[in-house]
Every structure is written in C-alpha cells, then in structure tokens.
Design a protein around this nucleic acid. Structure first.
Length: 421
RNA sequence: GUGGGUAUGGCGAAGCGGUUAACGCACCGGAUUGUGGCUCCGGCACGCAUGGGUUCGAUCCCCAUUACCCACCCCA
C-alpha cells in the first residue's frame, strides 16, 4: 500500500500543525523563563546506549525498540526516549565543564514498537527537560513546577500530581530486601510477571495492576518508610517547595517509574479524561545515570511529557487555542490586468508583514469574496477596471461591510497601519 | 504479544437480501450586468475495505485477509 502510512504513525495536517506550533512556542517561552535551553540529539543512537541508559529489564528495551543493523554492521536504535541521549550528549560534549547546573530541554519524535491505541503511537512526540549537576531538592521541585505551569497555561483542569521517593543506593537495597521478605511467603500467588520481577526488579510489583498482586501487597513496607535520613530530608524538602508555591500533590508510595534509572524523587501527572493512557507527564531524579553511561558521578532530574496526550486533553476539555487567522487581507481582482496588480499588491503587503492572499483559481468575484470570507480575512481589496483607470482600489471591511475607495499606491501601507505594523 | 469492536463518496452517516445507494457537512457552480457571511437551485459513489462462498439475486448472510479503533500489558 503506497498510500498508507505505517501503523502507529500520524500525518499532522495544517489544521493540526498550527496547534502544535502554538504549544511548542509556549513551551519554548516557558523554558526560556525557567532557564532551560534546547538540546537536539540524533533520532537514532548506538543500541548499547539505551540498553545501559534505559535499563535492560524494562519493557521498552525488552520488546519495544526499533533496532536494526546499519550498512556498517553497527546496531542502532531509533530513540525510544530522550534522556539517555541527553546524558550522552552532556558527557560527550563536556557540558559539565561549564557553570552548573546544565538545564536542557528537548522536543521531538520518539519511537516505540507497541500496539497503538488512544494516546499511544509508534512514533510519538515528547517534550522533556533535564537538569544536570544539581542535587538540591529545589531542582526536583523546579521541574515539577515547570510541568505544572505548562498545563496551567494551557488551561487544563483535573490534573493530579503524584509524587514518591524510591530512595538512593544506600536505602533502596534495604527496602528492596524488606519488600522481598514481605512478599516471599506469597510469592507463588503473584502473577507471572511479578514472579519474574521478584528477583530482577521487585519494586515494579508495587504498581502491578493485577488485583491479586495488590491484595498481597496490603501491609507491605513502603519506600518512604524505608528512606535513609538524607533521602527522607530530600523528599520532605521537595514537598516543602511544592507547598510553598501552592502546587497540590498526592503522595503515592506505590509510584515506581518504569525506567530503571530513577533514584529519590519520582513523579507523574495524571489526567483522567483522556482514556486509558492517562499519564501525561512523568519524571524524577536519576543520580546514577550519568555514571552508568560513563560520565563522572553527576546528579540529574528530568521529566518527559507526551505531546499527543496534551492535544487529546485539550480536545477532551473543549479548550480552543488562540490561533491567528490564516488571512489578514484578501485581494480580489477582476480580469487579467487586475490580477497582475493584485499579485504586486499582495507581495507588497506580505513584505510589510501582512498575511495577504489573492485568487489563483480563476474564480468569479463572488467566489473570491466567499473564499476571503471562509478564511476570515479582516479586509478585502477589490481591484477592477474602473478602479485601475482611477488608480484606486476598493477597501472593504469584512466585519462591518463598510467600503471606501483608496489610492492604489497607498493601499499596502494603509492596510499595514490597520494591523499596527 | 492477548482480547473486543468497526470497515458505505473528502468527512459524518442511512440502507441490513431484490428496480436509478437516503440525508447532513465540506467542496465547486449558479440565483440579470463587478462584492462575502443567510436563503434557494444545481453538480459531486458505474459502487458500499479486499478475496472467496451461500443465493435466482448481496452493501446487506457466512468464511478468510487486511486496515483502523478501543482495551490489557506497559508507558509519555
């Protein structure tokens, strides 16, 4: 099928891309205000980067990666997320040598081989930020504030922020063992995947959706109870910062992120009214990742949010984005000579910054007006034989229907003035 | 990887065994000579995802295939 796009991918048409551009511009301005600068990494990386960075026990690595061998025999993989690449770029480009922290954002396509459904695609788009070098809880809080502020500016409602702490290399092994000890007597009653997780990644059992597994978790020790003093203080400080700026949260001690690199803070922002894929944003702290990938021990925090899910949510909540009209001024022409004038006029107005359009389909004057009206042109100029002989054009205000005759050679600047250009 | 649902013009959607496949939207054109939004008129599927089968006859029944959607798993 030549005329069929690959499964799980989307064509974004002009009616969509105007919205994407609006949201992207909002994100860029938000990042400027928060001090995050754009990083662009390759769409594909050496496969090994994701094996190490994302974690080889994760579903992403085990079954969702687009991996192939290139003509040089290297195994490369389409990026399933951007954090591993950001860390790689941070180390490779020695960004640690500058003033810290290094605050970066990215936006672009990611690839995961999954069965598509509402809010989930094989090529999807993420916006995310990473902050390297700062171990302060203020960094954890800052990224959460940025995410929250983004959704607030869009006007989205019913957002729920869940936070948790999964501890550090000191206290996590202790907790891990405590959880295993708690579950061991009922190990054979857990679901198959949880039995596998028991040794490799027991924390993942906490957020298993299986009711039977959840039943056997009742009374289980929580990650928060097991935190060491430093981690507890860090977690409390993050919460204090959130309190200080009025961001509501829910402590969810079963929140464990699906990527292996997280330490301490983990958080998720959920939005219930967009179907089953309700996580619109997820992130946390990853103090061991830079080291894992071969850099010097460097703390980091970050999050990613799904762009498609943002638009899902906007639609579900009936939020209209303020998109500029497609046409400011339409120039209607009668006859060949007038068409030539219209072309010059349109060009002149475009050079002054207006969105100007004229007919290239040989439409009747009436049809030209219909066209201008359809795209909400604020004004229409009419160029006809009579006007040409007088060196004028008709200026029609499409809202009030008032019309006046103005000099042709002043038309462009008169229109530009109306738009305060 | 597993389960469920749906496939009719650019979009939405009737028809559910029988002469010319409703209707709405969109698009294009027109309603006296050069002017939009409202109204009216006209145009726009030789075909009902594809391939088989049942039948005198199928868009309507059966089977298969494919695609899309939704859900599980997991995640953004």
């Amino acid at each position: 099928m030549l005329t069929k796009r690959p499964r799980g991918t989307n064509d974004f048409l002009p009616e969509d891309t105007v919205k994407w551009q609006y949201v992207e511009n909002m994100l860029r301005e938000l990042c400027r205000q928060f001090g995050y600068e754009e990083l662009r990494t390759p769409i594909f990386e050496e496969t090994e980067l994701f094996l190490r960075g994302v974690g080889d026990t994760t579903d992403i690595v085990q079954k969702e990666m687009y991996t192939f061998e290139d003509a040089g025999g290297r195994s490369v993989t389409l990026r399933p997320e951007n954090t591993a690449s950001a860390v790689r770029a941070y180390v490779e480009n020695k960004m640690f040598a500058g003033a810290q922290p290094t605050k970066l954002f990215y936006i672009g396509p990611m690839f995961r081989y999954e069965r598509p459904q509402a809010g989930r695609f094989r090529q999807f788009h993420q916006f995310g930020i990473e902050c390297f070098g700062a171990s302060s809880p203020a960094a954890d809080a800052e990224i959460i504030v940025l995410a929250w502020e983004f959704y607030r500016r869009l006007g989205l409602r019913n957002l729920e922020l869940n936070v948790n702490s999964v501890g550090c290399p000191e206290c996590r092994p202790v907790y891990r063992k405590a959880l295993q000890d708690f579950l061991r007597p009922n190990l054979d009653k857990l679901c198959g995947t949880c039995q596998e997780r028991f040794e490799k990644n027991p924390l993942r059992i906490l957020d298993c959706k299986n009711p039977e597994c959840q039943h056997h978790l009742v009374g289980a020790p929580t990650t928060i109870d097991a935190l060491c003093d430093d981690c507890r203080e860090h977690f409390n400080a993050v919460l204090r910062h959130l309190d200080a700026v009025g961001i509501p949260y829910k402590i969810n001690e079963k929140l464990v992120r699906g990527l292996d690199y997280y330490t301490n803070t983990a958080f998720e922002i959920l939005l219930s009214d967009i179907g089953a894929q309700s996580a619109v944003c997820g992130g946390g702290r990853y103090n061991r990742l830079v080291e894992e990938i071969g850099g010097k021990p460097t703390p980091g925090v970050g999050f990613a949010l799904g762009m498609e899910r943002v638009f899902n949510a906007l639609q579900a909540q009936g939020i209209e984005l303020p998109i500029k009209p497609k046409i400011d001024v339409f120039v209607a022409a009668l006859g060949a000579e007038a068409s030539d004038v219209a072309f010059r006029l349109v060009t002149e107005m475009r050079r002054l910054g207006l969105a100007a359009e004229h007919d290239m389909m040989g439409r009747s004057l009436k049809a030209q007006f219909k066209y201008a009206d359809k795209f909400n042109a604020a004004y229409t100029l009419v160029v006809g034989g009579d006007e040409l002989s007088r060196g004028t054009v008709q200026l029609r205000d499409m809202k009030g229907s008032e019309q006046q005759e103005i000099p042709l050679d002043k038309a462009a600047e008169i229109l530009a003035a109306k738009f305060a250009l």
